[in-house]
Design a protein around this nucleic acid. Structure first.
Length: 456
RNA sequence: GUCCCCAUCGUCUAGCGGUCAGGACAUCGCCCUUUCACGGCGAAAACACGGGUUCAAGUCCCGUUGGGGAUACCA
């Protein structure tokens, strides 16, 4: 059975890049009837914060990317990690290193100053006797040969062992390092496929050495390329890396966010719009592209607008009510919004845009723009007169308006801009007939009267 | 510096030895239209460069260049 996992360290909020990694893990598990597990890597006691753990749960929940089994907290497995470290020590696969942090950083500084590679000198590697004082446990990395593995996404990967360092497994305070804990935990959790960002590709080599030393069979690795910001630089808070919550606050639907992230690196013929449900059936990690991609807000907006258009009018009203609040409009107001939704949704790329445009219908008489041109005022007065004497009814606004134009010898383009502005407060709106129809004569009259009296 | 990974229109991508190099977003034009969208039609737009291998290379190999990542008792 395929078992994947997402293993974040709770040292910050999850951004859109991590979400893509989660998505691929989740999809790969679902596509193979496997499991997707969650492990919180909280071995860094300084930087790990409970609110970030909370943020991980919220994000997964918001997106509907559910995990299986119990959450594993790495910090609670310290004993096991120590056990394995000491076993390696006993077996001669690891050694005690008494070097202080100061010594090590001096070594590195020296190496860098002389344009050399800053790796550990291994001076404790061949110590024959134990000394007093604190020590770390380091792995006796293989000195010669090379390491090869086949990454599910990146293909054949290899390094020469001479470039590897004797990495620290256990810190001098007994706490395992990330590099070591990951291996033990993935092994103990029976993870079959490690899907993570390419920033970990180099770690795969290191971890493979640990697997070897422990005599564990390693999992498959799949290193997903990173997403870059629109300007090509690394995605970070500075250049607009946002959390899922922020995008949702801006009116993006989770389905659209996921769909967009999926298509960034994965494709299925010429299909652009793919639901996660469908994708569960067809997803294959091998089709994920190995190169990195840039984030494009335009494209995500486009996908979001498609998802919005595909939603039913009633669904959209409900979405708007939870997005903003139910009391934004009266009950009748919401009814009018639903009535006019067809014209609204084709003009909106996000829920925020949709909400803003819904105001045209949702609010009652406090929604108008004053008219400045005197010819416009005259025309609108004619319009008001006609409406008063002979209003349109619930299904003939278009015919009514055409009759009115004929009667008054006006062209639609003479009166439409002013009418639109007076009724909707905007130069952009759905079709005028539609608006008259959905608003009804009473509301239109109210707004028009306000629009012309304001200036008088 | 060293190590690792990557490289098709501006962007996301299809391609898996023989294609007029296809699609989507964005851009521009036309149609629809009172406006703005939606929709329809169309245009412009790419195989980073240099060597090989092959009858044939975007596709395979090697360099160069460019981009990214890693070089911690962080993860």
């Amino acid at each position: 059975m395929i078992i994947t996992r997402f293993a974040p360290s709770p040292t910050g909020t999850l951004h859109i890049g991590s979400v893509r990694t989660i998505l691929f893990n989740w999809l790969y598990a679902k596509a193979n009837n496997g499991k997707f597990l969650l492990r919180i890597e909280d071995t860094d006691k300084e930087r790990s914060k409970p609110e970030f753990v909370e943020n991980i749960f919220i994000t997964l929940n918001n997106l509907g990317l559910d995990y299986d089994d119990e959450v594993v907290y790495q910090s609670q497995r310290e004993k096991r990690h120590q056990e394995v470290a000491y076993k390696l020590l006993k077996d001669g696969r690891a050694y005690k290193c008494y070097c202080t942090e100061k010594e090590l950083s001096d070594e590195r500084d020296f190496a860098r100053a002389h344009n050399q590679t800053p790796t550990y000198s291994r001076k404790c590697r061949n110590l024959t006797e134990d000394r007093d004082g604190p020590f770390t446990i380091r792995l006796k990395t293989e000195l010669t040969g090379a390491l090869h593995f086949k990454d599910l996404i990146q293909g054949d990967c290899s390094v020469k062992n001479e470039h590897m360092d004797d990495m620290i497994l256990l810190r001098s305070n007994g706490v395992p390092t990330y590099m070591f804990a990951v291996v033990i935990d993935d092994y103990d959790m029976n993870i079959t496929t490690v899907i993570r960002g390419t920033e970990h590709l180099n770690n795969a080599y290191r971890q493979l050495q640990i697997y070897k030393a422990c005599e564990f069979t390693p999992p498959d690795f799949a290193h997903v390329s990173l997403i870059h910001a629109e300007d090509g630089t690394k995605l970070s808070k500075r250049n607009g890396a946002k959390s899922v919550e922020e995008y949702q606050k801006e009116g993006f639907l989770k389905e659209a966010i996921l769909n967009y992230l999926l298509r960034l690196g994965w494709s299925y013929g010429e299909n652009e719009i793919i639901s996660m449900q469908d994708c569960c059936k067809i997803f294959d990690i091998k089709n994920v592209r190995s190169s990195s991609a840039r984030f494009s807000l335009d494209k995500m907006l486009n996908i979001n607008s498609i998802y919005i258009r595909n939603l039913s009018n009633l669904d959209l009203v409900e979405k708007l009510q939870t997005f903003d609040n139910k009391n934004r409009y009266s009950k009748e107001g919401w009814k009018r919004v639903e009535l006019g939704m067809d014209g609204l949704k084709s003009r909106s790329r996000t829920l925020s845009e949709l909400l803003l445009m819904s105001d045209i219908y949702g609010y009652e008489d406090n929604y108008y723009e004053k008219i400045m041109e005197t010819t416009d005022i005259k025309n609108i007065e004619k319009f008001i007169d006609e409406t008063l004497t002979n209003p349109w009814n619930t299904n003939n606004a278009e015919i009514w308006l055409k009759n009115f134009l004929e009667k008054t010898n006006l062209k639609l383009k003479n009166i439409a801009p002013a009418l639109r502005l007076a009724i909707t407060k905007s130069k952009v709106s759905p079709c005028l007939f539609e608006i008259l129809q959905n608003l009804g004569p009473d509301l239109v009259l109210k707004r028009l009267k306000n629009a012309i009296t304001t200036i008088l």
